[in-house]
Design a protein around this nucleic acid. Structure first.
Lengths: 229, 229, 229, 229
DNA sequence: GATGAATGAGCCTTCATTCAT
DNA sequence: AATGAATGAAGGCTCATTCAT
């Protein structure tokens, strides 16, 4: 989370108690303690997401958001201290829902032949990116851009780490373990490919050939004879 | 080049003689004919690059550019029809200088063992991105974002294609050739990794371990037994 | 009315209840719902009218209007989507007040000898233009120019038509009726004369001789033996 | 001429010698004494006229004019002290050519029956306005607007006066002569009608019915029994 | 005589944010 | 709690005009 002290996402996993006790100048004007308030925040975020999807980033103004959400601009500022915080909350919301989906899928993988496990993982990742594309291409792209601009690793990267871990366990490999740089390169390679495919809006994403190539990339890397020199 | 008839980049490869005979009332802008004018254009682009590097994209306004360049806003608009065109010219300039460096380096590679060739290529690419990183991380990020937003594949992708080709020739491989999806994934993986490393401003970029891992990624992919399953 | 769905003139004839249910992101601007807002719109229009009168068309900039009205430029744009719409509203306002006055006067004419009726009408028209002249010659000129530039027939033309109709009824003429071209020429002649007199700022406008000449023009035309030649 | 001390029109009738001996701050930078200079001025005016006709008033900028004329902006300012003076010169040029045409046509009218004479005059006037429309509607409208904005009576009005005079002679009328107001109204009525027809871009202008109606307007006025009351 | 690079006030418009009601 | 009127810095851009070469 980019600013853990100031979260607007109401995910069941996000502890609500971290919030500051008293509000300084940058904090929200009002703490959404009541059910109605929570609903208002959701409506505002939903409006923002809609605008991002339908009209694009440049239309994502505070006034538009308030209007689309059906509130006055004043109300919006009662829940968010500034425009930035709305984007933050939006990104958090997105990331968390994405996280949940991937975690759930990973939990279902049964340990087995390494090739099978990798393919399963690849499918989950592709599905994760593809879903975004399905909902709203524009939204996905914008969210990615915003997250990157904010320096967010998009929790997917962490998850990618987990995947490596999962794979590590699943495999009964002989040779030495992957070192930091190798993990780093492998995750960036896979995620970078997926991101590029989404950004380019390539229809390849859902093809079998694409999946095969990604599997080949990972397995080839893992099975490669130890570091050349 | 986004607009071949109206380029501001003075690359030795760009024919200078295409100048239109007659400009109508809606044509972009005056073309810099005098030496002073040419220098002005360069100063403007340089100022834009500086702002991108030091202050970030959101400060890249026409007024700031003009100010930093030491000209009045009117002068800027004598040479660029609008803000967009400045970005275009900047991207062109960047891409061309990058292209030249990479091409020059590639030309020096001597055919040899595939592993060596791949390592050479990786070094060239890393060098290419490292230089960017050196100049200004922010600049690199912005340029990449701008190029992507414009649908530019950043000529690096084409070059990546060339690399694959070069590799193809260099190797006396038996098995079948790479198909489209495989080339796609391989280039995106390598470039994606490099980009991520720059964006994250990771010190890894210049380490031997990183280089090794990238080489392993490529060779592992190439040597992988044909399509799994 | 140039844009009947979005009128700023609070004429008693304009139904106020047409307000759109839902405005999308590109809709003009907020509609003045509160009393304060309504007053603001009026002040803005009043300021525009003043500037037109005192400083001329070229000073009629959005910034000047806002300043003279005593508001910030932002406020102006809360109620008008662009400069154009201010001019439109101004023209509407002018035309409606002019219409009302003329209609009211016409309603008072009692049927009688044609010569008397024509003279009454002429007096009403002169009065209508004279009032304009009183306010501000510059304003009148500008309004006329703007209205014409917009393709507006300035409702006066319609009214001129009504006059012809009224005259038609009033007279028990034998000969054939006026044809299109004749009506056209007669209205343009009368209105053209009045306009020229205002534009030239001629003191003639309020003289008896001028009134006589206009009456003579009209009666002469109407009584003229059928098609010459 | 709006500013007799500063004429750029090279009509054979306009005495060239009135020009000020030495140049003050507002005067042109250079007196076009040589043939080449005169040609330059003509080219500039011609360019301005073309832009007015093809692109409209809003494109009539000094830079555009210079460009279209094939000169640098600097050269333009060597012959005209400012934008205004170009418009003035343009209007003069137009008016003079129009004057000449009408005078020439009037000279050919042979004295005869009043009805015939009036019809001849009407035809000349219609032809004068129609020609404008034929060449470039936009140009005619713009010129008229510019002339009016400048308070020019467009010499046509004077000429209209001459026409009345001509008619006066031609007719062997009994009753009293026309008084000032009557002349004023009659000329404004005729000219106003013609102007309106051009501004409205009405196809009526060239019809026989229109001509008939105008004739009826004039004759009706002239034959009308003396001022009522 | 001619050029064209340079100027900068000023135009229209947007939008995040505040605050009185 | 909510409203929405008001704000004003800032952005992109135009164009008449000047002046060194």
């Amino acid at each position: 989370m980019s600013n853990p002290q100031f979260s607007y996402s109401h995910s069941p996993h996000a502890p609500e108690g971290i919030m500051a006790e008293h509000q300084d100048l940058v904090s929200p004007r009002k703490r959404p303690t009541q059910a109605r308030a929570r609903r208002t925040v959701d409506l505002i975020l939903e409006a923002a997401a809609q605008i991002l999807a339908r009209d694009g980033e440049e239309k994502l103004t505070t006034n538009h958001i308030a209007e689309r959400a059906g509130f006055s601009i004043g109300t919006l500022y009662q829940y968010f201290p500034n425009r930035e915080s709305i984007l933050d909350a939006l990104i958090d919301r997105e990331r968390e829902s994405s996280d949940r989906r991937i975690r759930a899928a990973l939990a279902k993988i049964e340990p087995g032949a390494i090739a099978e496990t990798v393919r399963e993982i690849v499918r989950i990742l592709i599905g994760s990116f593809a879903r975004r594309g399905r909902v709203r291409k524009r939204f996905a792209i914008s969210m990615t851009r915003l997250a990157i601009a904010r320096g967010d690793q998009t929790r997917l990267d962490q998850i990618a780490g987990l995947i490596i871990g999962a794979w590590r366990d699943a495999s009964a490999r002989a040779g030495r373990d992957l070192d930091d740089s190798e993990v780093y390169v492998l995750t960036r390679a896979v995620l970078g490919t997926l991101r590029a495919t989404v950004l380019e809006d390539s229809p390849r994403l859902k093809t079998r050939a694409f999946e095969d190539a990604l599997v080949r990339l990972i397995l080839g890397f893992l099975r490669s004879p130890d570091a050349p020199r």
